[in-house]
């Protein structure tokens, strides 16, 4: 990991969290906002494979857990995003090739990520997590994430691949 890459990834994570909490908060449907950090992790998985994506998932998830106004046990989004990064990285040979496959990957990852977060909440006894809430939030989240995929995934993929080429040139 070179300094340039660390910087680029940190900037992407900060931008994603700021947009998610401050901008899309106004565009929330039933309180659900598109999970831009999850989209970022999926894009990284498609561009760079499971290990980089899972590591980014840990760090970005921790940032999401700790950034205001989060108020849950730290590590829950980190765990969800590590698994998402790993899974998306494992299927990237197929998903990296076609747009449709990428959208399906995003949908699956959104479902897995939000569900894992909910399950960890149930296990830890978070009072806000009940089955009815999960059943409404998860599908809306999947739809919203898929809607934003064409806007978010291509630019991030291009950025990450360009970053890779700059690295290769050295």
């Amino acid at each position: 990991m070179t300094a340039v890459r660390v910087l680029a990834f940190s900037a992407l994570v900060v931008v994603a969290i700021a947009l998610q909490t401050s901008v899309f908060g106004h565009l929330a449907f039933q309180g659900v906002v598109p999970n831009l950090v999850l989209l970022l992790v999926v894009a990284t998985a498609l561009a760079r494979g499971p290990e980089v994506a899972a590591t980014l998932g840990l760090l970005a998830g921790l940032a999401l857990d700790l950034a205001p106004p989060a108020d849950h046990v730290a590590g829950r989004w980190a765990l969800a995003l590590v698994v998402v990064g790993y899974l998306a990285g494992r299927v990237r040979q197929d998903a990296g090739s076609s747009a449709f496959a990428a959208v399906v990957t995003v949908a699956a990852c959104s479902f897995v990520g939000t569900s894992l977060f909910a399950v960890s909440g149930l296990l830890l006894g978070d009072p806000g997590v009940d089955i009815a809430a999960v059943l409404t939030v998860v599908p809306i989240g999947v739809v919203y994430d898929v809607l934003l995929t064409p806007l978010v995934l291509p630019p991030v993929l291009i950025l990450l691949r360009r970053l890779e080429q700059t690295q290769m040139a050295y």
Partner: peptide, 10 residues
Amino acid sequence: GYGAAQSFSR
């Protein structure tokens, strides 16, 4: 900033 419904806390 608004907490997301995906985080199940308001």
